[in-house]
């Protein structure tokens, strides 16, 4: 039995407004809001690395948990925007947190990485607490000249973290369902030269179908229905996609926690940032037995959902 016990997050200080982006890409600020639901996003400084963001979120999580990094059994770091092909940021993050010598695994997966890391951590937490971090510096992709209009509007930087334990905590992990299909591998890519490509229509078509299906299958095999879920903590890709998934599941979109207006799409960091903010807001009134669903979809394609129950 595994639990999601404590959460943490880090968002860079710099706020990039739609007005600032609009002047660079030549559009109306209102258009960005309309097509994405995003009002502003955070960008890291040029000097900040993915590891810097991950360490800050990890420290926040460990502070909330009140445990030293030395007590961790493992550290997982999900990121699609790490600065080097190898080594990935996990070993550096573990060392800087104070967990040098503990196994540190990278999940170089955009958007769905933290979900996959979380689901794997839940299977391994019997061996000791696992710190799972999603950290992304998406500005390293979009903050270029010329800036590409369709992608520049979407992305932001940040990091989220969760401590997965075998000792009882805030949420008990009930089950998870993960999927991968390389058929669409060319529809969302960041190549070795740093060139980002996205077939937005394909991504939306596939995500709109695969996310609700994964959630429905997971709920059904655990004897639950979408209407019984207290909150959905989904990858914050686009507010219109979140609304679409809610509509397909026939639940009010208000049940989907959303902070995309403030942070944009932070890829693999977004689900855990959302969870950290949901946890901080829900802490005042925890409802034992409430069902929570985590869900994500990303390049690969990789997608899935995780079912948890409030303790």
């Amino acid at each position: 039995m595994s639990f999601l016990s404590f959460f943490g997050k880090y968002l860079p200080e710099r706020v990039v407004s739609n007005a600032e982006l609009a002047s660079r890409i030549g559009c109306e600020p209102g258009w960005i809001q309309e097509v994405s639901g995003i009002s502003e996003r955070r960008w890291a400084t040029p000097e900040q690395t993915v590891a810097d963001l991950a360490v800050a979120a990890g420290e926040d999580c460990l502070r909330n948990a009140g445990i030293p990094a030395s007590s961790l059994a493992m550290v997982f770091v999900a990121s699609g925007t790490a600065g080097r092909r190898f080594p990935g940021p996990a070993a550096e993050v573990a060392e800087r947190l104070g967990a040098a010598g503990k196994p540190a695994l990278d999940f170089p997966m955009a958007s769905a990485g933290s979900l996959f890391a979380l689901a794997l951590a839940a299977k391994l937490a019997a061996n000791g607490p696992i710190l799972v971090i999603g950290a992304e510096k998406m500005s390293s992709i979009v903050d270029k000249e010329p800036m590409e209009r369709e992608t520049a509007i979407l992305f932001g930087d940040g990091a989220g973290a969760v401590l997965v334990t075998s000792a009882p905590g805030q949420l008990q992990v009930v089950d998870s369902a993960l999927y991968s299909d390389g058929s669409f591998r060319d529809d969302l890519t960041l190549d070795a030269a740093g060139k980002f490509r996205m077939n937005g229509r394909s991504v939306i078509m596939q995500a709109s179908r695969k996310i609700p299906r994964a959630i429905s299958e997971l709920l059904e095999r655990n004897g639950s229905a979408a209407g019984e879920v207290a909150a959905f903590l989904m990858h914050q890709a686009n507010q219109n996609l979140i609304n679409k998934v809610a509509s397909t599941l026939a639940v009010p979109s208000e049940k989907f926690f959303s902070n995309i207006a403030r942070y944009g799409n932070t890829s693999s960091a977004s689900m855990l940032i959302a969870a950290a903010e949901w946890s901080a807001a829900a802490a005042a009134a925890p409802c034992a037995g409430n069902i929570l669903v985590f869900a994500a979809f990303g390049a690969g394609f990789h997608w899935g959902a995780l079912l948890a129950r409030a303790v």
């Binding site: 939306i204 709109s208 179908r209 996609l241 397909t248």
Partner: peptide, 13 residues
């Protein structure tokens, strides 16, 4: 249907 603006990506599903 897309280039003409008749359908957006979210109407496709």
């Amino acid at each position: 249907l897309f280039d003409s603006g008749i359908l957006d990506s979210f109407a496709l599903p």
